[in-house]
Computed example of a mutant assay.
Amino acid sequence: MTASTVTLLCLPCAGASATMYLRWRRALPAWLRVVPVELPGRGERYAQAYAADLDTLAAQLCDRHESDLQGRFVLFGHSMGALLAYRMASRLRRQGRRLPELLIASASPAPALRDPARFDGLDHDDALIADMRKQGGTPEAVFADDELLRLALDTLAADYRLCKSHRYAAQPPLPVPIAVFAGREDDITPLQVSGWGAETSRGHTEAWFDGGHFFIRHQELAVLAVLRDLLAGLDCKANHHATALPA
């Protein structure tokens, strides 16, 4: 690894696995070391039990990826992954460990403005399927295959239980700049997006994209272009005020 290499740890959304980021390894420049993070119960960790507690999962991920959290690194998380990235950064700060140069929260309300009631009633297959279709991130092939659908439903249900368990605990702002990616047609409000600014003492930026909750997939080229620009500018002085990035 060269001195200029930046490790980009990518945390998946609820119901997803590390595979959602595999294409990024080919699409991003070589100086970015993309590390798709696998959560228990899926992919290469399929045999492991789903996580039952956000803080415990964040602690496990910090330990599992200890070698990746050295040198220059950035945490990226989409939806539930953004909440996990925030919990990981908070844990690293409490332990006096090296902090990320940037935390990127995609398609996620600020931790203080998340509403656990959003997951009420999503505890049976029909409701989960309806929610999957509404969010628009699940390929039709999954709905057409009983085995794939069963796995997707079980994983999503476990992750939604994790999300519903979230309770915000106020803490001093992180000394880490935060970039927020958001979809213009997502249910997440501008207020919930701008709320991330309260979690950092180093300023936050916002990048808005066309599309709903899965703009990260439907607008992938635009997302990666903004991501490249952000990471290429890590050595610049952090902006201490919220600004809008072009999408």
Rank of each mutant, 00 (worst) to 15 (best):
M1C: 09
C10R: 04
A16K: 01
A16Q: 03
A18E: 06
M20L: 14
M20S: 14
R25D: 04
R25S: 10
L28D: 06
L32N: 13
R33W: 12
V34E: 13
V34L: 10
R42K: 10
A49K: 11
A49W: 04
A52V: 13
D53S: 13
Q60A: 15
H65A: 06
H65Y: 15
D68N: 13
Q70D: 12
G71W: 01
R72N: 06
F73H: 09
V74M: 12
S79M: 07
L84H: 10
A85P: 10
M88V: 09
S90E: 11
Q95G: 14
R98E: 09
R98I: 07
L102S: 06
A105T: 08
A105N: 06
D115T: 11
A117R: 15
R118W: 10
L122K: 10
D123I: 13
D125K: 15
D126E: 15
A127S: 13
I129W: 11
G137K: 08
V142D: 04
D145A: 02
E147M: 08
E147D: 12
E147P: 03
L149W: 04
L151A: 06
L151Q: 02
T155R: 05
L156P: 02
A158I: 02
Y160A: 09
R161D: 01
S165L: 07
H166Q: 08
R167W: 01
A170T: 12
P172V: 09
V176H: 03
I178P: 00
I178A: 00
V180T: 05
A182C: 06
R184Q: 12
E185D: 13
D186A: 04
P190C: 04
W196F: 07
G197V: 00
H204Y: 02
A207V: 03
G211Q: 01
H213P: 01
F215A: 02
F215Q: 01
H218L: 07
Q219L: 00
E220P: 00
L224K: 03
L224R: 01
L224Q: 06
L224I: 04
R228I: 06
L231W: 04
G233P: 02
H241T: 11
